[in-house]
């Protein structure tokens, strides 16, 4: 448990051969840390391409059906989207605080930061749920009961959006925000695990790699949302 890790770093131990936090195929802790974070970055690169395909589909259809996309975008609750952006930014701050707390052996701050991060993550998903509920009530969910009749195209008085094209927008909206929400749920699982590990005192300034790379994942999910928010919610909002 914590003693195992602490023992390896005490001055009298043969730290090179018995440092339990350092795996044998690494020369030094710094190299081990770099390897772990590089691995996470490679994974995030695949995630960029994963979301990239969806962004690409979005860009193509947005070009083709701009007016219909603008009309559909206007029906989404911008206030909830902006609030969620702020919630995620706050959670990114608590994540860097958690990493810093782990680096500097501040256990209480680490636990509080991880807990607030999870709380903010849940808040995000709750707000997302309210938003989805609105879409269900308004029959804006693609499928048999979809309805988007007589919705004006912004900037073109007297013109109405083509419901079929608007349905494409909502398909992309639900897939992209849904996939993002799935990442949030996975992130919450990771942070719950980090919290339990931190509670047991497993992290030390020498070894807190999970906090660091878990943080990288969380920030990446935040970055995806930073792009999703203007692209989905703010296509053409001016009166």
């Amino acid at each position: 448990m914590p003693d195992n890790f602490a023992a390896g770093f005490s001055e009298d131990a043969h730290s090179e051969s018995h440092n339990p936090a350092l795996l044998h195929h690494f020369a030094e802790p710094q190299q081990q840390r770099d390897a772990a974070s590089l691995g996470m970055w490679v994974f995030l690169a695949t995630e960029v391409m994963f979301f990239g395909g969806l962004f690409c589909a979005y860009l193509i259809y947005r070009r083709w059906y701009f007016g219909d996309f603008a009309a559909a975008s206007k029906s989404i609750n911008m206030g909830l989207g902006a609030t969620n952006t702020a919630v995620l930014i706050c959670s990114s701050l608590t994540v860097v605080l958690a990493v810093w707390a782990a680096q500097t052996a501040r256990r209480t701050l680490l636990l509080i930061s991880l807990a607030i991060t999870m709380l903010l993550g849940l808040t995000f998903l709750g707000i997302k749920g309210i938003e989805y509920r609105e879409k269900f009530v308004e029959h804006h969910v693609p499928g048999a009961s979809f309805s988007f009749e007589n919705e004006p195209i912004p900037g073109h008085p007297g013109q109405f959006a083509n419901p079929r094209h608007a349905q494409l927008f909502f398909s992309l909206y639900f897939v992209m925000t849904g996939l993002h929400a799935l990442h949030m749920i996975i992130g919450l699982g990771i942070f719950l695990w980090l919290f339990i590990m931190a509670w047991k005192g497993r992290f030390t300034p020498e070894w807190h790699t999970p906090v660091e790379i878990g943080g990288l994942y969380w920030h990446f999910v935040d970055i995806v949302w930073i792009y999703l928010f203007p692209l989905l919610y703010l296509i053409d909002r001016h009166p």
Binding site: W41, L44, A45, V48, M49, F55, C56
Partner: peptide, 14 residues
């Protein structure tokens, strides 16, 4: 390098 590579391939795609 990984960050730049990821962005490069994203821009290639888009």
């Amino acid at each position: 390098l990984v960050v730049v590579a990821a962005l490069f391939f994203l821009f290639l795609l888009l």
